[in-house]
Design a binder for these strands. Sequence first.
DNA 1: ACAAAAAGTTAGTCATACCTAAAATACATC
DNA 2: GATGTATTTTAGGTATGACTAACTTTTTGT
Lengths: 254, 254
Amino acid sequence: MTTAETLTASLEDYLEAIFHIIAEKRAARPKDIARRLKVSNPSVTGALRLLAKKKLVNYAPYDLVTLTGKGEEAARDVIRRHEVLRDFFVKVLAVEQDVADKAACKMEHSIPGVILERFIQFAEFVEVCPRGGSKWIAGFGYHCDYDSAMENCEKCIAQALEEVKKKKRQGGKKKMPVTKLKDIPPGGKCKVNRVAAGKASSRIIEMGVVPGALIEVEKIAPLGDPIDIKVKGYHLSLRKEEADGIDVTPLNAR
Amino acid sequence: MTTAETLTASLEDYLEAIFHIIAEKRAARPKDIARRLKVSNPSVTGALRLLAKKKLVNYAPYDLVTLTGKGEEAARDVIRRHEVLRDFFVKVLAVEQDVADKAACKMEHSIPGVILERFIQFAEFVEVCPRGGSKWIAGFGYHCDYDSAMENCEKCIAQALEEVKKKKRQGGKKKMPVTKLKDIPPGGKCKVNRVAAGKASSRIIEMGVVPGALIEVEKIAPLGDPIDIKVKGYHLSLRKEEADGIDVTPLNAR
DNA sequence: ACAAAAAGTTAGTCATACCTAAAATACATC
DNA sequence: GATGTATTTTAGGTATGACTAACTTTTTGT
Ligand SMILES: [Mn+2]
Ligand SMILES: [Mn+2]
Ligand SMILES: [Mn+2]
Ligand SMILES: [Mn+2]
């Protein structure tokens, strides 16, 4: 089970920083951590000793720092909270990137799991629901920028009406388009239709790749082998054989 | 100007507690504060000395505690953040009341002003936008409760289509209904059309009661004199003469 | 190889924010 | 008005989390 040892906000930030530095270089030097978190060197030494005591980092004086398994798990969890909040602020609330990022890194330490999941679900709902969608969210941008908020309401309604009608016509004529996950381009989003029961299916199902789930494709390696996706805020790397068993409906063209 | 002395999360919570206790009784006793915040008595004494040093509370040993003007302003600010977050969690994200409240009281200390305003604006946008609305938000409830999310999508779209059409017909035939603020019942919401330029208009305009603003009526006193409203997260108490100058469009019937 | 520079650690300080135990004060009641 | 109880404060302690100054170790350049 996931040990729920409570970490302080400060220690979570150290873990987060160490993870990111390791992702860039191979291991983290205390100096890098200090620079990134804008604290003094002795502060880093202190934090590393606390983290080592909790078995979250491998640390010996004058040595490079790496994360233990437990530490990486904890770091990923912090980063997930950070990214979910940041993305909600940017994509739903139309907040500026760097403001959103700073706020996310402050709030990530106090958001309960239930509410984090709701942030994800809401963003997905907006994406998926015919009454929501990116065009509707764009309307919120207007609502923020111009004080005379819903001036162009007429236009917005007409458009929504059109789209709903079109969707209905399409829905009546032909089936929803079904593709393989590998055919979704990087940056594209899709909804899972079916996960073929294969050897590796249990792992991906556990991570949230189930029928109905929203997937964002992040990166596809040259030969299509590791496909990086994001599901419910989790970054996942799928092997070709895993991805091949996933049938999806593309969502890009709304 | 509002002195932006940075308060710690802990001190903000003390201010918040003191404000609420004073609202219930006349003044706050350290014991009340300790009970409410679930800390020991000496912790309260310590906090009160810090707050007194910052001129936020009137405090003398063994005496009752009251807020200074500055202290009340700071307390109201914390409470506004708390309520805005809580209401967003409950009304938009469909989070349970007490979970939302606890989370709000943790996150209120780290949310930047810009994002707080966006939370308010988004909730208002959902309320006001013809593509949003309470029925649409209810759809998010389904999306959360049932895994087979948008099963009843067809119905939802049809309904939305109907409403948009009806709105359009109404819009073509007759003018938007205009009422006085005093005619909105407690719990009702409305949009400000016009604020008559009177003696007291500058105060309420400063607080955000401007054309286009969304108002929620909270309480109307027996003779209609103090009308308690909420605008952009601020609780306001309007005198009859102030309320009389405010023309609104009711929003209840969507 | 060795000195200088850079990086890292230790030691010691300070502020917040809790706590318990003990002393002081206020109040309530007989 | 004495006395007991509840409240409040003081005293003293712990833990986090930051800092500076001084020391040690490692790295780097010649
Ligand atoms: Mn972060
Ligand atoms: Mn952070
Ligand atoms: Mn609060
Ligand atoms: Mn709080």
